[in-house]
């Protein structure tokens, strides 16, 4: 079982499409891989009253996020027959229409890759100490709310 030393990389600003292409290119040397499952999160122009989200600024408790991502990685590698995992999350400002999250899972077969990717994305959203501050087009900001706030349910 092969995994990178570090599972999550923080990227200042939007994740360029070329970075995602590079990951695929890089894994091409591993001919045991038969399937990739890739999730890309893009900043959406949500409506906020009569205003609209124009960008999200991300901050993270980086040391804790790195440790937590290791634990998530351990659980996912344990549960699914995957061969690799790579996560890139933006920090700082990402405008609407730009990519803020990239999750790549590799496996010999598609089902493991797809199921593991789906669960990893859910865990990233509910368990990693990362926050999104939504900037509005006209003025001000609001804090992003994820639909799954696992650790904060009482």
């Amino acid at each position: 079982m092969k995994r990178l030393n570090k599972l999550i990389f923080f990227n200042q600003g939007a994740i360029p499409a070329t970075r995602i292409a590079d990951i695929i290119q890089h894994h091409g040397s591993d001919i045991s891989i038969g399937a990739y499952s890739i999730f890309l999160g893009q900043v959406r122009a949500d409506l906020a009253g009569n205003d609209q989200v124009s960008a999200i600024s991300y901050t993270a408790y980086e040391d804790m996020a790195l440790e937590k991502m290791e634990a998530i990685g351990d659980a996912i590698f344990e549960k699914y027959a995957i061969t690799g995992m790579e996560v890139i999350h933006s920090l700082g400002e990402v405008a609407t229409g730009e990519i803020c999250l990239c999750v790549v899972l590799t496996a010999a077969h598609r089902k493991a890759a797809m199921d593991a990717c789906s669960e990893t994305v859910e865990l990233i959203k509910s368990e990693l100490p990362i926050w999104g501050k939504e900037h509005l087009t006209k003025e001000g900001h609001q804090w992003k709310i994820n639909t799954t706030n696992g650790k904060h349910h009482t």
């Binding site: 999250l101 959203k125 100490p129 990362i130």
Partner: peptide, 10 residues
């Protein structure tokens, strides 16, 4: 020590 409001990454 850190105080963490609900996470909203992704």
């Amino acid at each position: 020590v850190a105080l963490l409001p609900p996470f909203s990454g992704g």
